[in-house]
Design a protein around this nucleic acid. Structure first.
Lengths: 215, 215, 215, 215
DNA sequence: AATGAATGAGCATTCATTCAT
DNA sequence: GATGAATGAATGCTCATTCAT
């Protein structure tokens, strides 16, 4: 009734399939999703899926790549290396969380799914690495001292990890993006020692009410 | 005739099975692991597995619970709420990372696996929540001001997320536990504004060479 | 109703399966036969087939081997190298044709099937080679002169080829085993030059009525 | 736009397709060959195949017929019923083996393939029958006595069977055509009783060195 | 208490075949 | 005349799960 037996150009079908696949995979997970289900969702026949993507694994890989690419692009595009450090940090955190908030179903779950099967561990790891590198570069850009490269990398890992965790809550609808972002910014900017009520400006590490004073 | 058919007390059998299951699950993942493989590893018959655990899902759930419990217990046991804030932070981070370092195969992979299937999302979320609560309470313990409960919760989420990300690297053997711990402590304690290089003592937020000065 | 859910020892089931498989394969051919069909015929479930034989190919291979073995054994057992040459020839031809006559469905068709898929060409070739060697040895045993080995081999190939062709007719019910055997014996014994009509004893190559006299 | 879409006269296309089909079928076998593969080899689209031949089965049938026809024609053309019997025999054997030797890929394999699927058993049987009739007629032509028709038929079956077996070796490159032909001629001409070193002329059934003396 | 034997149900994958252009 | 796009229908194979012993 809806779609049916339309003759579509290759490129269109590809996206149609990927859209359906991302959707179904993200709901049921990789293993629990059958090619039948994807075909049904895409309103095409199973052979088409195989014709275009070869196998379930490759199809998932294609989903992963597309989503990964979009995500990284979105984050990268929002970074302005000319801004002051803190604003850069704010920018990347907001970008990160916002993207995921706007693409919950697809991204987080795909991301989650992908980590479970060794077959995709590689792809995900690579994708995450790119984000981490981005963040590490940002950290590195904020300083002139030759801090050890490895340290920035490690910090980036922690930051991104924190971001993912918070993002998961965001995507689950548990928390508000802006609140979460603000909190992360403060947390990472001045640490637990100087925290957190102060929204900005006053950076007194000994400000009254700071957690650090007591923690 | 004789071989293999030992009559073991229930409790022993249970652990024997769980040990085998954890091991196989952690290597191959939940879906890629067959009950046959587990039975073989445990050197018992499949019906035994079903007799004791009812289903694959329940068996995995049992693995998850046991490992989760051990992990949380290990971390909790290492926290001393009477220590000064920073030492508490150091303690929990070290405890967290050390445990995972020592139990890589089992824990991280199980953890990873568990997140992929909706069936276990609940259990994992619950387990993580307990850790987060622990951390949140720790944060809360460090202050007297009535900071909003939710903020501590959020911070804890970020902290634990960072911890998990770093732990993954630790368990992969990519980084050294102590180095990672030190870096996290500094990062979280004084934030990016503060200088990570300094190992301790000197907490000057304006110390030369601090990342914060430039980032 | 008939077989059902009996618990049979491994060895029995194996034969039961092989019997069914040989039967179905021989009727429909390798490719046209589905594992479902075999399972149905054997009155067991498909997983059993896989448990016992691993794959369709292996199952067919097992059929092939069993039938091949039986056939070769039957022929070999009937050869008496102490008999006079012509009697040996008669013996092997009769044995060959009789076996096939008595096991039509299974053997010939299997034989035919097997040649079609490259996967089994090897096995069949090997089996045929054993028969050919047997025949070649028989030929060789009848002479003292050092005829070139290769010549006996070649002759054996021709003989066996003729045997297979005739056997196909026998198994198709087109001709009578004894008539066919007699004719082959005469043909091969004295060649086209000799008279095929004579049943025995009189071997006069110039006997009136011999084909050779005129062909 | 330009490439590949040549408008060819029907007859040419038909041969082009058949050539491709024969080639692919002979390499991979009937079942293992997909229409896609044939279309690709013929450098046309699949619908063309269906337009011209209706179905895979019919296409294969067409291949079979063409090759069968060529083969029979080749053999028939080489028979000269006016030659003396033995020369006729020599002629047909040489013709038979030579044709196959020169057309290995196509013929033997097609032949082999065809026998496996019941769908073509008929066609092949018919083709073989024509060869057998040819040979039977030749045998019959060599004699004046009214031997039972059936006996010539039977002998022809054996002869052709032997021929096929030897031909298979020839086509496999295992043996030389001329050697094989010479051996077959001798074998069939004077039988095992009077054999085989003597190339010709001397037909003494008791010639020294003959297998017959001892076999 | 313990297991070898057995299966229902499902899933990825492949083709021969056909429209719509 | 020629084809890219599309599919219905099978089929091999696996696995969680359960009896009968």
């Amino acid at each position: 009734m809806a779609g049916g037996t339309k003759r579509l150009p290759r490129a269109v079908r590809e996206q149609q399939m990927l859209d359906a696949a991302v959707q179904v995979f993200s709901i049921n997970g990789y293993h629990e999703t059958s090619m039948d289900a994807i075909a049904a969702k895409a309103e095409i026949s199973k052979p088409m899926l195989y014709l275009y993507y070869g196998s379930k694994e490759e199809l998932f890989g294609a989903c992963l790549s597309r989503e990964l690419g979009r995500f990284i692009e979105a984050v990268r595009a929002d970074i302005d290396f000319k801004l002051p450090p803190k604003d850069m940090l704010r920018g990347i955190i907001l970008s990160f969380l916002s993207y995921i908030d706007a693409n919950r179903a697809s991204w987080i779950v795909l991301y989650t799914q992908a980590t479970s099967s060794q077959a995709f561990a590689h792809t995900v790891r690579e994708g995450r690495e790119r984000i981490i590198d981005l963040v590490a570069r940002m950290l590195s850009a904020g300083t002139r001292n030759p801090e050890p490269e490895a340290d920035f990398q490690m910090m980036a890992i922690a930051l991104v990890g924190a971001g993912e965790a918070v993002a998961t809550r965001v995507s689950a609808g548990d928390v508000d993006v802006d609140d979460a972002a603000e909190l992360m910014i403060n947390l990472f900017w001045r640490g637990l020692k100087g925290k957190p009520a102060e929204r900005d400006g006053v950076e007194a590490s000994s400000a009254p009410g700071s957690v650090s004073a007591h923690l």
